[in-house]
């Protein structure tokens, strides 16, 4: 697999991946990370936006070397501007003798498919699965994990005990705003955020839609550019290209307004069981009703096969 060691190679990796599926990248593992106990940071980018992938990122290095994150200027990625984040990411790549990283790019199509499946997988579940997947990937790559730091938006206690149950051998810290508290999480956050931003920039529409980053914006429902894109790029039948997360209320509301309505199994309220036909046994002894006007009902065979006579073409 091609090595990502710059913004250019990152963009190349993203462009070469199928953006309707998830993509995963893990850097080469520094030898020191296999030898000495390491800290691992995990954070996400692009959870809220109505379009583009959600990216989970991780960064890791030996505990003894963790001051390197301060030298790299890793702070809360939301506090940094894009240029600064790109620079820090490039520097993280350069520290490949000490620091390793990985990203899990979750395609908007996969997010939609999961949330709109019969099981209705929640975004929380998708997020946790991704974080768990990252820890497993880092572990199986040979990193000597000692302590994992995870950022969360939800209640940390439940999440922490969930991870602790899966990884009893590691120390786990789940915390809100971990990206500003722990530089290792900051670094993870920067890897995730930079990957998401560049994924949006190099997005190739499978649907051959001529639109660039300038046309669809950040993806936050409040972004006027994104709003305009959502209003202007709605196909009345298919709705949106697969860049869009259909499971977002922003998308659902726009479809309600701009696209043909659809009826289907997914929209149907759960059907009530048909009333049981309680014919009493004595009724069979009564005089038969000779009235022959009763409508002929087709055999069950047809009903089971959804076949009906339809003169109303």
């Amino acid at each position: 697999m091609a090595v990502i060691n710059s913004l250019g190679t990152l963009e190349k990796f993203i462009s070469n991946s199928d953006n309707t599926e998830n993509a995963f990248y893990i850097s080469e593992i520094p030898d020191v990370c296999k030898e000495y106990p390491c800290i691992v940071g995990i954070d996400e980018a692009g959870r809220g936006p109505v379009l583009g992938p959600m990216v989970y990122g991780t960064s890791f290095c030996p505990i003894n070397e963790q001051m390197i994150y301060n030298k790299l200027d890793c702070a809360d990625s939301k506090e940094l501007n894009e240029e600064k984040r790109d620079l820090i990411f490039t520097n993280i790549c350069k520290q490949n003798k000490t620091v390793g990283w990985a990203v899990d790019i979750i395609s908007p199509n996969i997010i939609s498919n999961n949330m709109l499946s019969r099981k209705k997988v929640s975004l929380n579940q998708i997020s946790m699965d991704s974080a768990v997947g990252l820890i497993r990937a880092v572990e199986s790559a040979g990193v000597k994990i000692a302590h994992v730091f995870v950022d969360t938006v939800g209640p940390p206690e439940k999440y922490q005990s969930y991870l602790k149950g899966l990884f009893p051998q590691f120390e786990i810290t789940v915390s809100k705003k971990a990206d500003s508290l722990y530089p290792v999480v900051s670094a993870a956050s920067i890897c995730a955020k930079v990957t998401r931003d560049h994924a949006l920039k190099v997005w190739k529409f499978a649907e051959d839609i001529e639109a660039t980053y300038e046309n669809y914006g950040s993806g936050y429902p409040s972004d006027p550019v994104t709003k305009k894109f959502m209003e202007g790029h709605c196909d009345p039948v298919f709705g949106y290209p697969q860049l869009v997360r259909f499971s977002w209320s922003t998308a659902e509301n726009a479809l309600e307004k701009l696209a043909y309505h659809i009826d289907g199994e997914n929209k149907e309220p759960t059907k009530k069981a048909p009333p049981v036909n309680n014919t009493s046994i004595t009724s069979f002894f009564k005089l038969a009703n000779k009235d022959n006007t009763e409508k002929k009902v087709p055999h069950e065979f047809f009903a089971q096969r959804c076949l009906s006579r339809d003169v109303e073409f």
Binding site: D208, D235, I262
Partner: peptide, 13 residues
């Protein structure tokens, strides 16, 4: 699904 419309669709695209 029943698409509540009778129109042409960009199926290819």
């Amino acid at each position: 699904f029943k698409i509540l419309a009778d129109a042409s669709a960009n199926v290819d695209k």
